[in-house]
């Protein structure tokens, strides 16, 4: 039964740099079903980050439509887009992007606080997720006191603690060594397989691609290859 979380139809994104139009995306069609683990690969400038940004509501397509969980993003204003990101999308960034003045636990609780989740429930959910990711002893440390791998795990914890419909990861292994990358990917796989988290990851890293069940390759703003298995 079709249960798409992401639906992109005829999406194009044209930037203007020095008065020259740059076609970052060209008429892209993409459907991601609930529970899929998708990698977006391709050389630099192929459009994978742009596609990820368009799916995540961080950027708007010049033409075409994008729907997340049945909601058409084209119809939303900036505030509604922010609310959609807050409640339906989790982000994992290349540079972790944790809030440096908050502890690991506070970073994990941050989005729940924006959502208005009660203090007791927030604390419990943050403790549970940190424990499940092996970070129970790191809760009071600030990002600067954590290793890169630990920071990325905190970022994943922050992204999934609110149980979003979609987890978007932009080069999640770019700043990690191979051992830590393996640990992160094992974690993402577990989340995908046991919790049914839908994951879309833009990456250069063959290791990340190998963990994804569906691999999409982009070139010159178009989907060049889309394979499963």
């Amino acid at each position: 039964m079709s249960n798409p979380v992401v639906e992109v139809r005829g999406a194009s994104r044209v930037y203007t740099e020095d008065a020259v139009p740059v076609h970052a995306l060209r008429d892209v069609d993409l459907t991601v079903q609930r529970g899929e683990f998708v990698s977006l690969a391709g050389p630099s400038g192929s459009g994978k980050s742009t596609l990820l940004n368009v799916i995540g509501g961080l950027d708007r397509p010049t033409s075409g439509t994008v729907s997340i969980d049945g909601v058409c993003l084209n119809d939303l204003n900036d505030t509604e887009l922010a609310d959609l990101r807050l409640h339906k999308i989790g982000f994992v960034f290349q540079s972790y992007n944790l809030i440096p003045v908050l502890s690991a636990r506070e970073n994990v609780e941050f989005i729940m606080q924006l959502q208005g989740v009660g203090a007791a429930e927030r604390a419990q959910r943050a403790a549970d997720i940190l424990q499940s990711l092996g970070l129970e002893t790191m809760g009071d440390r600030r990002p600067g006191e954590l290793s890169g791998g630990q920071q990325q795990r905190v970022a994943v914890a922050r992204a999934i603690v609110t149980e979003p419909a979609l987890l978007l990861a932009d080069e999640p292994s770019a700043n990690l060594d191979s051992t830590t990358t393996g640990e992160l990917l094992d974690l993402l796989r577990v989340l995908n397989e046991t919790r049914g988290v839908t994951i879309v990851a833009a990456t250069h890293d063959p290791m990340v691609m190998s963990y994804a069940k569906r691999r999409i390759t982009l070139r010159d703003g178009r989907i060049e290859n889309d394979s499963t298995g």
């Binding site: 609930r34 339906k88 506070e106 941050f110």
Partner: peptide
Amino acid sequence: EALNRPVASLRLNPKFGAVNV
């Protein structure tokens, strides 16, 4: 619950928890 929650209703959620942070 998160998947089925329409965006329009999410906008009405109280944001008072954000003040503390």
